[in-house]
Design a binder for these strands. Structure first.
Lengths: 252, 252
DNA sequence: TGAACGGCTTGATCCAGATCAAGTCAGCAC
DNA sequence: GTGCTGACTTGATCTGGATCAAGCCGTTCA
């Protein structure tokens, strides 16, 4: 089986570690590229890790050079600088793969060694691989590498779209864009409508992500509410009354 | 040979189209992944295209779904919105590959169809492939796909670092970061020192890239000059008097 | 039941960088 | 030379969103 069930990363549900074939994100994560038989090889090199809300999985430094799939929960991908400033550079939902931030050149060195880390927002389950073993697998299964390439290209485009947001969009557009994207993402995850959804992040994290202050985010949400575009039920639950208008305000 | 020499993209030097094997970026572009023999296959599907300064190579829409290598000159990768706002999301130097912005899913559709384009800064030479043929080649040569994956991961990290710049850095840090990166990039291209170099962009483009106004860029350059960190010879030539200090001011 | 706390909202003021408005300076045509 | 043009610099003023400062409101825990 994939990992030592007595390790600190042992799963909490059941005596047997869950094999990849019954994984919650089997058909939406990178693993779709592998057949049931091939999946065994991935199973062997992976282990599961649970993060409590607020807990970090660090990619900084040289020791931890692993890749991970998010199998459950929501996490932030954070880039920080030495003086304490932080920037959320991505949100990670179940089935998302993370590894780009710690990618190294073929010589094994990472040219740009800025500190990145994953921080759990809710309780998060990761499926972690070591760098070396995952590389071996990539070489063995071209379809896996191809799928990873497609996903990375897509991530790159999302990052560049976000650069546009950070550089050019107003406070209102930023908040509208955030809400629009979250509703979209949650729809594809839950296969329900985009009308009504829970925010995965609190105001402080939203502010970090769209690069505004808590106060400005709060003011913009109030503004969207008063304009009848959205309705809030409590702090976290959003009802998108006029989703088209939300998209327009987001700049689409 | 690779392309019709009577086409509008014909090379300007010599009667015969230059084959890949004598390409200026043969050993630094994506093509390093291919052996001399394999290179022939790339040669067959590629054609060259020259852009005059200011000219665009558009990736918007569905017709033009191609990839390109920059073989000469400097270009901007631009993301624009319908209302006319623009953001430079990347600088392209010789040996850089561009394709992520137009990457489509296996179903042939591009989920996020925001308009991206390449705009030549100096005279630029591109080596262009059609999407479909390049994909075939990727499937035939795993080493090519592997190299592309590495480069894309690296691009993703650069994009995320830039997100930090756009979200968190002050005007001074942005300009210092720009100068620092350009000196670095030009060094690896020319194999000369980083002490002294020409800016590839004018003030307006620098402003677009680091998301400031022309005036603020100009003021920050003056400030760095007065502080003795750099010296300007004319508008474009920079002498990095104290490159370490420049790195510190950039936030490294 | 109430008091302490954390997450959110709202109002008042401030400031980094935008915007507006002149310059300066080099190159170039005549 | 003189005037023109385009790229850059510099100064004065303005402003969107930050910062500072109270509240508000639901939850938890004694």
């Amino acid at each position: 089986m994939g990992h030592d069930k007595s390790s600190e990363y042992a799963l909490s549900f059941g005596d047997e570690p869950t094999p990849c074939s019954s994984c919650a994100v089997r058909n939406s994560s990178l693993c779709v590229a592998l057949s049931v038989d091939e999946l065994h090889d991935l199973n062997v090199i992976s282990h599961r890790k649970t993060l409590a809300p607020g807990q970090h999985h660090v990619f900084e430094g040289d020791q931890v050079r692993d890749f991970a799939n998010v199998t459950n929960g929501v996490a932030k991908l954070v880039r920080s600088s030495e003086d304490g400033r932080m920037q959320i550079v991505g949100l990670l939902f179940p089935s998302d793969f993370i590894g780009g931030a710690v990618w190294a050149d073929s010589d094994g060195h990472n040219k740009l060694s800025e500190p990145y880390s994953i921080e759990a927002v809710s309780e998060v389950e990761l499926c972690v691989f070591s760098r070396r073993e995952f590389h071996t697998l990539l070489r063995r299964y071209p379809s896996l590498e191809h799928t990873l390439l497609e996903r990375t290209m897509s991530e790159l485009q999302i990052a560049r779209d976000w650069m546009f947001l950070l550089g050019r969009k107003t406070a209102e557009e930023r908040v509208a864009t955030f809400l629009f994207h979250v509703s979209d993402r949650i729809q594809t995850l839950t296969c329900k409508g985009t009308q009504s959804f829970d925010l995965p992040l609190g105001r402080a994290d939203i502010a970090d992500y769209v690069e505004l202050t808590i106060e400005t985010v709060s003011r913009q949400i109030s503004k969207l509410r008063k304009a009848g575009v959205i309705e809030m039920q409590g702090n976290r639950h959003v009802v998108a009354i006029d989703r088209d208008r939300l998209g327009e305000l987001a700049g689409y």
